[in-house]
């Protein structure tokens, strides 16, 4: 196993789990993502006990649904984020999150490797774009994604008028959109 976990290709690891039910790969994936999923849940307002339980549920779902992971459509972090988000809505807001119909691919078809590589590059670019956002913009995006805040709730928390919030999120997203242009195109 690669010692430097930060440079691991997690989509590749997840594909191993998908295709070979590879338990060692799952252990590595767990080591990397479980603490992040739990941090995400804690920051969303879950108690320590609830965050631990939900994290375990999320990681169990990752194993169970690995056959649905398509590395040409989503990075591992993207896919795991959607599972964690759904669990968060279920546990913290007591609602269901209706899911788009899964795009299934036949048992023999493998994702197009060119698409996989392009998606991987775009995801790295997106990470860099996020990391270089001005503090204020990044803060708002974080609040939107982690604290389960609507635009108007953000306004209440910060005391800023709604129009300002909307345009700041807009501005942040416009900057992100540059990095996401490739992701935006229909496949």
């Amino acid at each position: 196993m690669t010692p430097d976990v930060t440079t691991r290709d997690w989509s590749q690891v997840l594909s191993q789990i998908r295709s070979h039910r590879d338990q060692a790969a799952f252990a590595d994936l767990f080591t990397h993502f479980a603490p992040r999923v739990k941090a995400f849940l804690l920051r969303s307002g879950a108690s320590e006990t609830l965050a631990e339980e939900c994290m375990q549920e999320v990681m169990a779902t990752v194993w169970q649904k690995a056959h649905l992971f398509d590395p040409s459509r989503a990075a591992a972090s993207t896919w795991i984020f959607t599972i964690a988000r759904n669990r968060k809505i279920d546990a913290l807001r007591k609602q269901r999150q209706p899911q788009p119909e899964d795009l299934t691919w036949g048992p023999e078809t493998e994702p197009d490797q060119t698409d996989v590589v392009i998606l991987q590059q775009e995801t790295e670019e997106l990470g860099r774009a996020l990391a270089t956002l001005p503090e204020k913009q990044r803060d708002l995006i974080e609040r939107a994604y982690f604290h389960d805040l609507s635009h108007s709730q953000i306004a209440e928390e910060t005391g800023l008028p709604l129009g300002t919030i909307k345009s700041r999120i807009r501005l942040a997203l416009d900057r992100l959109r540059h990095a996401m242009r490739q992701l935006d195109r229909p496949k």
Partner: peptide
């Protein structure tokens, strides 16, 4: 969702 994934990667560890 990719933005969410990038935030998940970057939101610290518990």
């Amino acid at each position: 969702d990719a933005v969410g994934g990038a935030m998940l990667e970057d939101c610290g560890v518990a």
